[in-house]
Each structure stands twice: as structure tokens, then as C-alpha cells.
Computed example of a mutant assay.
Amino acid sequence: MIKAFAVHEPSGDLQPFEYDPGALLPDQVEIEVKYCGICHSDLSMIGNEWGMTQYPLVPGHEVVGAIAKVGENVKNLSVGQIVGLGWHAGYCNECPQCTTGDQNLCATAQGTIVGHHGGFAETVRAAANSVVPIPDGIDLEAAGPLFCGGITVFNPLVQYGIQPTSKVAVIGIGGLGHMAVQFLNAWGCEVTAFTSSEAKITEALELGAHHTLNSRDPEAIAAAAGQFDLIISTVNVKLDWNAYLSTLKPHGRLHFVGAALDPLDINVFALIMQQRSISGSPVGSPATIAKMLEFAKLHKIQPKIETFKFEDVNQAIAHLKSGEAHYRIVLCR
């Protein structure tokens, strides 16, 4: 039996829970969970905001731990090895996306917390090819958020060939944005942070932003017309997207990694006349996650975290809901 914390109804409290995972499959590993980040996606799943939660739900998809068991067909991982597990706990391994290295785009990928029990537990199981070894030199306590938030903001740099000479802006300096600024600075880009918080201006600069712009100041946004090659939006609220489009250069891209649920109100001529693009992306493939970890190690990039004990998970969830988290929360064994 696996001991865990589960929620049994939308937005309910997490309670001690045990479940029988059955026999370990030949291509699976079992991870002894040492740390697990708490992400806004966990909150969305707990509240069934996306309409796909199955209860009881064991959240947790930013797992760091040691391999405790390996299936008989697993050759690339060994007991005791330190690994991480993110949003996906398995792939179909047959579709064109899986066979060409885009496993994160597999239409039938197994979510770690979608129809599957996640990392708010003593152990968690996953397909071996969804698990990524963590290089020596990474702070394990802070590594969990890299497997969701970190890879979410790193993936576009790889997918769209962002150059060190690119001028890039980040909307929202929070759980995603504070990591995006660090990655972009280390990538070599000139980085601008859009933020509505005066308190975050100094911190954005300390994280690696070269400039800041007040996202609530129409005159400041207008003055930035035609400046950016890429804007990464990390927020989940509706903004004046046409104002942000105006700050893009010709061929510029407005890219969404924050799950804004409202439809986009876009002036199509702003796209056509300057050949601009709008796009979005999820987490990355295991290969891109591995690349991100090496990059983070090389440049000493890590999320800013607050820690709670696993038994204080409800207190940690409440802290995240309050909006006061700075910036990611990690449960520690």
C-alpha cells in the first residue's frame, strides 16, 4: 500500500489516504518521494476547474526522489538514483509525437495527476521514460518546481530558436515569471519584466531583468512599441493583449504559458501588417527537461521556494491560494 494525501471532493481538504498500486509494470519505476512542489495546476485539479479531476485525487507533479524499485524492462535507471517527475507519468510511445521526440505533445500521455495518483505521497509510480535523472550540483530541495514551472518557461526558448541577441519581455513576475527571467538572462537575452507590483520591480532586476515596465501604465506600454522579439505571458488573467502586441517587432511572437481561460480579443491587423504570431506551449519532452537541468546547473538557476512538511500540506495549499507564496512551495519529507 502507498500512503498519501488525497482530496475527495472539489476544493476539499487533503486527508491521509492509502491505495494499492498493484504490481509494478515492466517499464515502470517507483520513486521514494523526498520533495514535491505544489503548483497552481494542483489547485486547479483539486477544485476540478478543468473538468477532468477524478476523486480521490492525490496531487503533486513536481516530484524529486530516489528510485526505490525498477521494472524488469528498465535499463536506464537504477535503485537509489535521484530523479524527478513532472506533469507526465507516461506516454503512448507509438504516435508521431512520441517517436520524434515530442512526447510532451502526445495526445494520450498519462498525466501524473490526471487519472493517476501523484507525488503527495511516500512513493509514486511512473513510466521510466517519463522520469529524468537529476545532475549532481542541483539543489534537490528546490529542484521540484523546475519539472513543471521551470520547463514550461524554458521550453519556448528551445522550440522557437530564441537567440542570445533577442529582446524578450515577461508578463508576470510570479511562480513562472521569476524563473523565466533567470533563464532568459542566462540565455543572453535583453530581458524586460512587465509587472504591476512596485514591490517586484527591485526583485525582477535582481533576478536578471535589465528593464521593467509597469503593466498598468498605458503610456509606458505605448512607449515600448516595436521593441520585443518575444513576449512570454505567464499570467492566467485577461489583459489588453492588443497593447502587448503593439510592443512586438515585425515577426515578433506573443507566447502563452499561463493558462488564461478567457478568449483572446485580438486585432488581426496587428498580426497581419507586421507578420506577428501568437502561440502557446506546455511542458517539455524528457530530453528538453534534461537539457534544462544541465542549463540550470551551469548557470546556477533555481526557483525561489518556501518549504512545508508533508503533514502540513493543507496549510501549504492555503498559503498558495492566498497569493502570498514567494514564489513556489515545496513539501519536504
Rank of each mutant, 00 (worst) to 15 (best):
P133I: 01
V237A: 15
A6Y: 09
E219S: 12
G150H: 09
I305D: 07
N185D: 13
Q15H: 05
P145W: 07
H117C: 06
W87Q: 11
G144K: 08
E219N: 10
F310Q: 05
I317L: 10
T212R: 01
A223N: 04
V330G: 12
H40N: 12
I2S: 09
P218R: 12
I329K: 07
K3V: 05
T212G: 03
E219R: 06
G115R: 08
E324N: 14
G119N: 08
V170R: 08
R125Q: 13
P282T: 15
N236F: 00
E190A: 13
A325L: 02
N185V: 00
N214D: 15
T152N: 02
I38D: 06
G101M: 04
K3E: 15
N155K: 13
F295G: 05
Q97C: 05
F183I: 12
A142G: 02
I301G: 02
A260Q: 10
R328W: 09
P10G: 08
Q159R: 15
N185H: 15
G84A: 14
Y327S: 10
G60W: 01
M292W: 05
Q81Y: 02
C148G: 07
V64C: 04
F194K: 09
V33D: 06
A186Y: 07
E32S: 11
D217W: 07
N48D: 15
D102R: 12
I151F: 05
G71S: 12
P96F: 03
C98Y: 08
Y91F: 15
L25E: 15
V257S: 10
Y327L: 05
D217S: 14
G90S: 12
V283A: 13
E324L: 08
R253A: 05
